[in-house]
């Protein structure tokens, strides 16, 4: 009886199995490191910034400390080991802006949101988000994730905060 060589068949089988997977494999690393539904922070693989997934909803008293705009001490990043969270600069905040809006139900209405809907699920967009970038005397730049527009706001205005480090 002639002995059959199984190696070519194994190689062919492996190629046939691997091809469909290889055709759909991502060619570049994803923008964000892996996260779970209840993960409190998320890391951008490219900008190297670590963001809070749940923003701090407007509370001027918590955000304004001794006349300065500060990341509130109640946030997850502030409490996290290895360093304090801080307010993002305007340009850092702009890296979160998704030019392709998606619709979400918020406060009884469907509103467009210009931020990743999985990484930053449930982001309220009723108010803009503070940056630490000054915009003149007593003013700071803020960014709206509803319109994608930036605006200079007087300090102590009610706005949201998403801390970073």
């Amino acid at each position: 009886m002639k002995k059959r060589n199984a190696l070519p068949r194994l190689v062919l089988g492996a190629i046939l199995l691997a091809l469909p997977a290889a055709a759909d494999a991502p060619r570049n690393p994803p923008q964000y490191a892996q996260f779970l539904v209840d993960t409190s922070t998320i890391t951008d693989n490219f900008t190297k910034l670590q963001w809070e997934r749940r923003p701090m909803v407007s509370d001027p008293a918590a955000i304004w400390s001794q006349g300065n705009l500060r990341c509130p001490s109640l946030t997850a990043l502030f409490k996290a080991p290895g360093g304090l969270g801080r307010l993002p600069t305007l340009k850092e905040l702009l890296t979160l802006l998704d030019e392709e809006p998606h619709n979400e139900y918020e406060f009884g209405a469907v509103v467009p949101k210009m931020i990743d809907q999985l990484a930053f699920a449930g982001t309220p967009v009723d108010l803009p988000y503070w940056s630490s970038t000054p915009a003149g005397s007593g003013m700071y730049w803020a960014l709206s994730f509803k319109t994608g527009l930036m605006m200079a706001l007087p300090e102590a205005t009610g706005a949201n905060v998403r801390c970073v480090r």
Binding site: P26, R27, P30, Y32, D98, Q117, L118, A119
Partner: peptide
């Protein structure tokens, strides 16, 4: 979807 919606590499 697994790699966070619009921010996927592809």
């Amino acid at each position: 979807g697994e790699c966070a919606g619009a921010r996927c590499p592809d």
